[in-house]
Amino acid sequence: MRKDIRIAGAGGQGVILASVILAKAYGINEHYYVSQTQSYGPEARGGACKAEVVVSDSYIDYMKVESADLFIAFNQFGYEKYKEETRSDCIILVNSSLVKTDPVNEQIYKLPATEIAETQFEPFTVNIIMLGGLTKLLPKLHFKSTRESIKSNFSNSMAQINLEAFDQGYHYIESHYFNNLHKNCS
């Protein structure tokens, strides 16, 4: 099994942090081989930002993503730039607060992460809400593993709000797209 995951967005949206937490969840908690790479400009905020995670049950040779199995877009620019570099059966998750998608493509999962973050949490939790939705869509990744990975990445006070945001993203995708297929959340 090899899964190529690509996350695209803008600098400052937490694209890279989301990919790091994901890589640790797979690598440490699920014991898979992982390679996480990134590409960004010299700006601290703004500008295009892309992060890639390759997960495999055997040694990973090429560590970049050519055609994504899972593509996550945090903003419109990222979506437009990479939507073609995907496999035909690619699962696409977008931050629907900021991304307008092609209406004919039914494979796209929409999660209004910016809206949820701003109304229920803090603006900086956008990436973790997206990570929640992504965890629901990813194969061989348990809800608990990503949660553990979030806990170990933040101090106690920050972990709490991020865990709540993560749960919210996870359950949003679950309730909107998987009504009858409940994943084990214990």
Binding site: A23, G27, Y32, Y33, V34, Q36, I60, M63
Partner: peptide, 9 residues
């Protein structure tokens, strides 16, 4: 840069 910034198990 690729190896320096890459995370792996």
């Amino acid at each position: 840069e690729i190896i320096g910034h890459m995370r792996e198990r």
